[in-house]
Design a protein around this nucleic acid. Structure first.
Lengths: 244, 244
DNA sequence: GCAAAAGTGTTAGAAGTACACCCATGA
DNA sequence: TCATGGGTGTACTTCTAACACTTTTGC
């Protein structure tokens, strides 16, 4: 048994990625789980925390081991602590084996994080050992533990956070992006449809978006202008006018 | 030692109450802590969780033991899991004694909840054993653990949640309230000032606020009309119009 | 009558909504 | 030249902000 593991608390990460069309979630295989078939036994990336490790550090560690990324904005959004989270016995057996624990795990409280990423070449060559896959949020299989619930709440949380601070969504896009890409991201996350003309007007008033001279290349229609995100101080991003 | 206690995970409750002027927090004495003086040794109400208890249940239990209230809207807002949360040795010693644990506690992850209450007669006769007090958020003493941080984040969380769903704030008010009371609550929580006339206009458009015929009584100025909150389905409360 | 808080009208500007049409590009 | 998506103009409605004066009540 790893002496530094805290066997009561874990972190789980809901990595949400945008592929140009829809939101995807990164899931990993429960490696070495018995009775596996080709579609089953997936879970969210996560880990028990170490005894001397902050929660945020543990989440960064999980993400880094999986993707190699560092300094990603991981947002804690909820703790899941139902007493019956491990009600499926194969889940607790798997945990005990995976972490080389020599006592029975009755219960784990997990702290769930979410992070927004763009799915690009780097994301494709994920650390091999984890059998990680991006899956559209609408097509998730049954995951281990209560991980399906966790994904649903993560998406809801991102939806809410991004209405308060729309700049969060820029993490889902490449450094240069078109107006249409940004619009589709917002439509997806917020679950709305947006008038194209009005969106361009709005774009022009966003202080944190800068138009570039550069345009798309090699498309068989009129080339779209690129924009870039300009990070500004955290004040007044929400444009949270009050009821008056 | 109580065999049902989980010695790694706790819940802490930030009970926010409105007294007509400002937001107050409920804090309790760390009973039996050595070296106490009359101003010190306060903390947030909280408890280690029981092994077979959901997090939400634990939070309700803490609130119920303290105030006698049931069915209160407790909102989980963040887990605090810094590895050094118990860096003050007297805090961990107190915990071990209070819970009659016979081993050393190195570290606890706490799940923090917040709840909005009105401060009325029932609140005044709190369960005596806890030495509980309401303190204006601006005048909090140094609390045990990282509880001062937790209070700050609770207030911020309520501020954000209430911009998305203003109906949360009605828990801070009596069943019948005046326009001025509601306005002051919003001004306090959101940290804004609101034009009185414009507020009345807005009030008239809120589908979840109903004017009553009843008016204040026995005040030495013009009597204010009472309003009541009308709970409606959860859809569209935020009036979350999208960027268009 | 006077102190103290409640309540009301109007206007100008900004922001959001709803439409239908023209533009640039590669095939 | 045509199919494909990119980009625009204009009128209308709604929301927001900024103002100062009148009303009711107990003392």
């Amino acid at each position: 048994m790893n002496p530094t593991v805290n066997p009561y608390v874990s972190v789980d990460c809901v990595l949400l990625g945008f592929d140009g069309e829809q939101l995807n979630v990164l899931i990993v295989r429960q490696s070495g789980k018995g009775g596996e078939d080709s579609t089953g036994n997936y879970k969210l990336p996560g880990s028990l925390i170490y005894m001397d490790e902050n929660l945020d550090e543990a989440a960064q560690r999980v993400l880094n081991q999986l993707t190699g990324l560092v300094h990603v904005n991981m947002m804690q959004f909820k703790a899941f602590g139902g007493a019956d989270r491990l009600k499926n016995p194969s889940d607790s057996v798997w945990l005990e084996r995976f972490h080389h624990l020599n006592h029975h795990i009755e219960r784990i409280v997990t702290i769930a994080y979410t992070s927004l990423l763009r799915i690009d070449r780097r994301m494709e060559k994920l650390e091999g050992g984890y059998e990680a896959r991006w899956i559209p949020i609408g097509e998730l299989p049954k995951l281990a533990f209560d991980h399906n619930d966790i994904v649903l709440e993560a998406v809801e949380s991102v939806k809410q956070k991004s209405t308060l601070d729309p700049t969060l969504l820029f993490d889902l896009l490449p450094r240069k992006f078109t107006a249409a890409q940004l619009r589709v991201v917002i439509e997806n996350v917020q679950g709305v449809t947006i008038d194209v003309k009005n969106f361009h007007k709005k774009l022009a008033t966003m202080p944190y978006v800068m138009p570039l001279e550069e345009k798309e290349d090699g498309v068989n229609h009129r080339a779209a202008r690129y924009y870039k995100f300009k990070r500004i101080r955290k004040k007044n991003l929400t444009e949270g006018k009050m009821e008056s």
